Amino acid sequence: MTALDATILETRALLVLSGEDRAHFLQGLVTNDVTRVTDDRAAFAALLSPQGKLLFDLMLAAHGETLLIEADADRLEDLRRRLSRFKLRAKIALAPAEGWSVAALWGEGASNALELPAEPGAARTLDDGVAFIDPRFAEAGARLFLPADRAGALLDGLGARLVEPTAYDRHRLTLGLPEGARDMDIDKRTALDCGLDDLNGVDFEKGCYMGQELTARTKYRGLLKRRLMPVAVEGPIPEPGTPLLTPAGKDAGEMRSGLALDAGHGLGMAVVRLEALSAGEPLRCACGEARLTPRRPDWMAPTEAAGAD
């Protein structure tokens, strides 16, 4: 039986949104339908700029009379400030969730250990926290929002082996899951460039939200030219932002995050031009000797390249 692994995600942290207008307030701002976030259902979403560029990827879960919002830990105050600008007369309060940890749980039997159906977003209370199957897709495992002083004990009680955060990075990169600013090239890419529509992160029926016009236009007019996707790396891991080239020397995209597996191989995420992807050839770095082979994960819908830039 595959081991059940867990780790505390120090790169992720929580805001707590309280007040009677909390769902209505957030509904007009993020890409997914917040009204569907209940005690037994969590969601994946994003906050976009008015121009439709991705600013934050978010996990949303209900906790009593509040909503917990997961985002990049080092950008949490920026998220709080941005959301607070839209408070106006809304009866809400928004603050960092002190004393909480964000954890990931994955491996065979993760849903059984949590007594949850293996359905994306299925949620329940766990001790004084919340546990839910990853809303992006069930094979990713689960997320847990736990009291920080008991997080390790609670994970151990689930039968999980506590591992280093790099083990989770290997897990998510193997699945092709982007996470946070290290992958998503903040304020430069759209939600669809980053695959959020294929990961249950965009509701095209929910009504208006910030950045909706560009998101819908990109979807229905087939305007994608580049796509964030996993890559297998031969050679040293390129630095984030390293330009990628086709064998003929044409622009093919750029590197995002990466993880070395051994001296000569690794995994990563890269923004890849769809024209270069369709050619089916390995890419090379503009500097360095690494070769990158993009691979389309099972969850990613086929996408044809739009016209040239």
Rank of each mutant, 00 (worst) to 15 (best):
residue 249 G to P: 05
residue 89 R to D: 02
residue 91 K to S: 10
residue 87 K to G: 01
residue 95 A to Q: 15
residue 261 L to Q: 08
residue 286 A to I: 07
residue 292 L to A: 02
residue 134 D to P: 09
residue 169 D to M: 11
residue 31 T to S: 13
residue 19 G to A: 09
residue 195 G to R: 01
residue 46 A to M: 03
residue 147 P to K: 03
residue 227 R to E: 04
residue 186 I to C: 10
residue 173 L to V: 08
residue 69 I to W: 00
residue 217 R to D: 02
residue 18 S to M: 11
residue 68 L to K: 07
residue 273 R to Q: 12
residue 7 T to W: 04
residue 62 A to I: 00
residue 267 L to P: 06
residue 251 D to L: 12
residue 11 T to S: 13
residue 224 L to Y: 10
residue 4 L to M: 05
residue 273 R to P: 01
residue 85 R to P: 05
residue 98 E to C: 03
residue 265 H to M: 09
residue 63 H to T: 05
residue 176 G to A: 04
residue 212 Q to N: 07
residue 270 A to G: 07
residue 256 R to G: 08
residue 83 L to A: 04
residue 121 G to E: 02
residue 91 K to F: 02
residue 236 P to M: 12
residue 103 A to M: 00
residue 146 L to M: 10
residue 58 L to A: 08
residue 215 T to S: 12
residue 128 D to S: 15
residue 156 D to T: 15
residue 71 A to C: 14
residue 155 L to P: 01
residue 64 G to F: 00
residue 30 V to P: 10
residue 267 L to S: 09
residue 109 G to A: 07
residue 72 D to K: 06
residue 39 D to T: 13
residue 15 L to Y: 02
residue 244 L to H: 00
residue 149 D to K: 03
residue 285 C to L: 01
residue 154 L to M: 14
residue 125 T to M: 14
residue 20 E to I: 14
residue 38 T to Q: 10
residue 164 E to T: 13
residue 160 A to Y: 01
residue 216 A to Y: 08
residue 225 K to V: 15
residue 219 K to T: 06
residue 194 C to A: 13
residue 307 G to F: 08
residue 43 A to K: 02
residue 136 R to L: 10
residue 214 L to K: 01
residue 94 L to C: 03
residue 6 A to S: 06
residue 96 P to A: 05
residue 85 R to G: 07
residue 80 R to I: 00
residue 183 D to R: 06
residue 101 S to R: 05
residue 193 D to Q: 12
residue 165 P to S: 09
residue 33 D to W: 04
residue 220 Y to T: 10
residue 95 A to D: 11
residue 240 P to Q: 08
residue 296 R to F: 11
residue 98 E to W: 06
residue 176 G to F: 06
residue 287 C to R: 15
residue 75 R to C: 06
residue 108 E to P: 00
residue 269 M to V: 11
residue 70 E to D: 14
residue 118 A to S: 14
residue 19 G to H: 08
residue 267 L to H: 03
residue 29 L to R: 13
residue 195 G to E: 03
residue 6 A to V: 07
residue 209 Y to T: 02
residue 300 M to W: 10
residue 173 L to P: 11
residue 257 S to H: 08
residue 233 V to G: 01
residue 93 A to I: 01
residue 224 L to N: 10
residue 258 G to V: 05
residue 18 S to E: 15
residue 4 L to V: 05
residue 23 A to Y: 13
residue 179 E to S: 12
residue 105 L to H: 00
residue 123 A to L: 07
residue 234 E to Y: 08
residue 10 E to Y: 13
residue 46 A to Q: 08
residue 77 E to V: 10
residue 68 L to N: 09
residue 33 D to H: 13
residue 158 L to T: 00
residue 194 C to H: 00
residue 186 I to S: 13
residue 215 T to Y: 03
residue 1 M to H: 15
